[in-house]
Design a protein around this nucleic acid. Structure first.
Lengths: 166, 166
DNA sequence: CGGTAACTTCACAAATTTGTGAAGGAAGCG
DNA sequence: CGCTTCCTTCACAAATTTGTGAAGTTACCG
């Protein structure tokens, strides 16, 4: 009955794990993330320890080591996953740290910062007193507001979670 | 001195407009939006009235009517732009309504809703009492929290803007 | 009620992106 | 100190995505 998968997400029902992984990954893809990073991330999220090695990921997702490498490089660039060297082995472990991944969502505001820069530039070059300039300025306002507020929101979340956890 | 461009974003310095449009569009692209919708959106944002016709967009951005059509279809699907039929003409007007576009950002929570569904499913199928299940449950918590809070944030924004505008 | 202006849809060509196989390092282990 | 194991990087083939020209549709206008 039990199959030979030994590694990765086994021990639990590998089919159920895979179903979740693929379904959740699909949602991430639809939100604009590329496929391999999405799948790798979902697999980590669904793992028991929150960590998997490159080999385990490759086996579970049926992808080449190169694909794992590429996906992980992307994920760690955007801080959704961190890499750990497992001492006494040349295996590398990839971990999804829940907190880290929330912050990553937030850190989309690196992007927002650049939007703001572009908008500021537009306000200046089109003229702050033109209709278009005013529209850009209001949009800029909105982003500046959002930015401040998101930081506060994250604090509220931590407070909420801590209260809940106790 | 004045050039012949007559339409679209002329009247103002067309070069400055174009510079902003392309620069801002590039930022949107980098955030994951496809190129044509990004450019069309930026052009509308930088227009004086906040509206442009299909022909004006095509001329200003140097793209075919088909490309305009495709971009606009996408933008109105995600509610970043609305279409208006200009009475007494077969011209169609596309408008960026500032408020609407803020809401669109927010309405990314249609996406979040689906993430939540996938997570809920995962919690159930992996077992709420397993380590992985617990991780998924916490992530789900986070999104549910965010969702509530974003709504409030938008209200705060409106209040802030109104206070500021007066 | 025909003509024509404006947008849309369709099928395809071009460009970009994705994932693979193979070769190339690090790093533990004997 | 060389061997082996595991991961990464590189160049390329496949697949997907993008934007275009051309034909089609709708609706104003005379």
């Amino acid at each position: 009955m039990t199959d030979a998968v030994g590694a990765a997400g086994a021990g639990r029902d590998p089919e159920a794990v895979s179903a979740f992984v693929e379904h959740f990954a699909a949602q991430l893809v639809e939100a604009g993330m590329t496929r391999m990073p999405s799948r790798v991330f979902a697999a980590l999220l669904a793992s028991d320890t929150g960590t998997l090695t490159s080999a385990e990921l490759g086996e579970q997702l049926r992808i080449s080591p190169a694909a794992v490498s590429g996906a992980v490089r992307y994920l760690s660039q955007v801080h959704m996953v961190s890499r750990e060297r497992e001492p006494g082995s040349r295996r590398e472990r990839y971990r999804v740290h829940s907190d880290q991944w929330y912050e990553a969502l937030t850190s989309r505001n690196a992007i927002i910062k650049r939007w703001e820069d572009a908008l500021r530039e537009g306000v200046t070059s089109l003229g702050a007193d033109t209709p278009a300039g005013r529209r850009l300025a209001e949009t800029l306002d909105f982003f500046e507001f959002i930015e401040r507020d998101v930081a506060e929101m994250m604090e509220r979340w931590r407070a909420y979670r801590d209260a809940r956890h106790r």
